[in-house]
Nucleic acid binder design. Structure first.
Lengths: 144, 144
DNA sequence: CTATATTTTTGGAATAATTCTAATTATCAC
DNA sequence: GTGATAATTAGAATTATTCCAAAAATATAG
């Protein structure tokens, strides 16, 4: 049972069920790990963190859990060039910034109208299930 | 020597030189293959097509050439979830639409102002070297 | 021109992320 | 509870990409 769910506990199982998926201890722990440290971990990093709580979990299960969470839209999968897939539990509309220097990834909130504007460039007949806006560069910011 | 260069022949070698890279027959043929059929081929597909003209070229060289072309900004590398990198010689500002049904990728031209608007969401201190806007979904369009 | 340095190409081996497989275990519906 | 379905597991397999060391090509300096 994840501690500080963005989504109420009830809804966690529900969201899975809506996609025909079951709730399992492994899926809960994987999700809670994503919520605890929102640094866009890779599957391997998630694996390492989850093992602290479930020492016998396998990497294949971590991949399965992540895929399940992506499928039921509790988590987004993020890809950058030639890098392993990273996972993000932020449900608000946002873009991603990948810092080439540090390898870290930051969420950039999208103004409410911008996503619509971007969607609007699609010609008729194009039906987008998902949109991803991603930047690569370096963040000189004081933020980390 | 590519036939219908978007960029004048002179500039092809020049663009490479600007990045400290040499012009080679292999790089020319790889580039011409990208121009001839703009279907966002993978490195493997490029390899297959280039072999028609240069039967002894190696896959490693194709990767090298593609990387060189990306580096000197004649070509863009495009990534979709869990798929091999695809290559695109379209130099105009555009987004990518990946059709999940067919696996095909389409360029979507960006209105002149939109790229700026998207760039503008970055907080101070964030310096983006590149932006990528990508859609996944299905294209019911009459177009292919 | 020729010698030397640098870059590129090549084929094969190595790596890294992800998926597959088959057996076991857990969970759901009745 | 029983049978059907789904999830987990460990390890093998696959796939894209990178690395490596040697040979070839090209540029540069004299």
């Amino acid at each position: 049972m994840p501690d500080s769910l963005t989504v109420p506990q009830e809804t966690f199982a529900q969201k899975l069920a809506d996609s025909g998926l079951r709730n399992t201890p492994q899926r809960e722990v994987v999700y809670s790990v994503l919520l605890q440290k929102r640094d866009h971990p890779t599957a391997d990093e998630v694996f390492a963190r989850v093992k602290a709580e479930l020492p016998t979990i396998s990497l294949a299960t971590v991949y399965n859990c992540l895929e399940a969470l992506v499928q039921c839209k509790l988590v987004r999968a993020v890809n950058f060039e030639r890098e392993p897939t990273r996972y993000c539990p932020n449900l608000r509309p946002h873009a991603h910034f990948h810092d080439d220097q540090t390898g870290s990834t930051h969420d950039i909130d999208l103004p409410p109208d911008l996503l619509e504007r971007v969607q609007a460039i699609l010609p008729p007949g194009y039906d987008a299930a998902s949109v991803e806006i991603s930047f690569r560069g370096s963040a000189v910011s004081s933020q980390n």
